[in-house]
């Protein structure tokens, strides 16, 4: 670009830019819209042809989903496992994130390596030996057992995210609290915690979504107490197709809400965790 662009060329560029943004948005939204149409169609209509391009707002598929044997239990299991994962990964991960952001200690690099290693490893594969281990300890096919595995998945993220969140709170604020009569603990609860709480909530939600979406380990580790993903996976080949779509819709729904809730933090979280 040697000369200044002519008004026409700039207009064309502008038009191209807006069109691409709209197309890319459509690329994300249209498939979701198709799923919505299928979910809100009567079971017969799901297999009809050609498809209507507007939802019929028939609750047949969803009510079939709700009454399908074992489905509600699977949904409850998913919520419980994800909730437990959320609590565990923050309770265990946040202290380490704090330690990484505030202290220089011997072995810090080794510790970071361990965290990164877990991120670079196909973790669901560990479900295989864990299945054996859990049978021995009686954790097999339990909510807690699966939540522990999902926590392993979520912990590297919890550590890195809380690390970057804590790094965003100036050390001076804590030091000021110490000089004003706080111990390390009270300085944390009175100064750091109130400031960090929204961020912690965001990373907790992130942990929830990781667990909610996980398929492989859930399928390997549960038999009677299936989570929703594991249940759908097992039923993929046999279930009627409208059940799949209704299940997929239920899977997607919390994701939409959660990403909206944490959208402010998504980028800040990765900005520092990257380096």
């Amino acid at each position: 670009m040697t000369a200044v662009a002519t008004p026409d060329a700039r207009k064309a560029g502008r038009w191209l830019y807006v069109t691409s943004v709209v197309l890319l948005c459509a690329w994300v939204i249209v498939p979701l819209y198709f799923l919505l149409i299928n979910t809100l169609s009567a079971p017969e209509d799901v297999q009809s042809y050609p498809k209507a391009f507007f939802p019929a707002f028939d609750m047949g598929s969803l009510s079939f989903f709700v009454t399908f044997n074992g489905m509600i239990d699977a949904l409850l299991n998913s919520i419980m496992v994800a909730g437990l994962t959320m609590i565990l990964s923050i309770a265990i991960g946040a202290p380490a994130g704090y330690a990484l952001s505030r202290f220089d200690f011997r072995g810090k690099e080794l510790f970071r390596l361990l965290i990164l290693l877990t991120r670079a490893f196909p973790l669901p594969l560990l479900a295989l030996p864990l299945a054996v281990m859990f049978i021995r300890t009686g954790l097999d096919d339990t909510i807690i057992g699966l939540a522990l595995v999902h926590t392993t998945l979520a912990i590297p993220f919890a550590v890195l995210i809380t690390f970057s969140l804590f790094s965003g709170i100036p050390m001076e604020l804590e030091e000021a609290a110490w000089t004003l009569g706080c111990t390390r603990l009270t300085a944390f609860t009175k100064v750091v915690l109130p400031l960090i709480l929204p961020g912690i909530a965001a990373s907790a939600i992130f942990a929830f979504v990781i667990s909610w979406n996980e398929v492989f380990a859930a399928a390997v580790l549960t038999i009677e107490n299936r989570t929703l993903t594991a249940f759908l996976l097992v039923k993929l080949s046999e279930a009627p197709i409208h059940l799949k779509f209704a299940g997929g819709f239920i899977l997607v729904l919390p994701a939409l809400i959660f990403i909206f809730a944490v959208r402010k933090y998504l980028f800040a979280m990765w900005g520092i965790a990257n380096r």
């Binding site: 609290a177 110490w178 000089t179 109130p194």
Partner: peptide, 30 residues
């Protein structure tokens, strides 16, 4: 001794005014 038991107060370079508290609660924090 930790800072709180030394009978000192400190003014920081970047002020370290707690962002989640009012000025009143900041001054009254200690």
């Amino acid at each position: 001794l930790p800072p709180k038991d030394r009978g000192i107060a400190m003014v920081f370079q970047n002020y370290a005014v707690f962002p989640h508290l009012t000025v009143f609660e900041n001054i009254g924090f200690g």
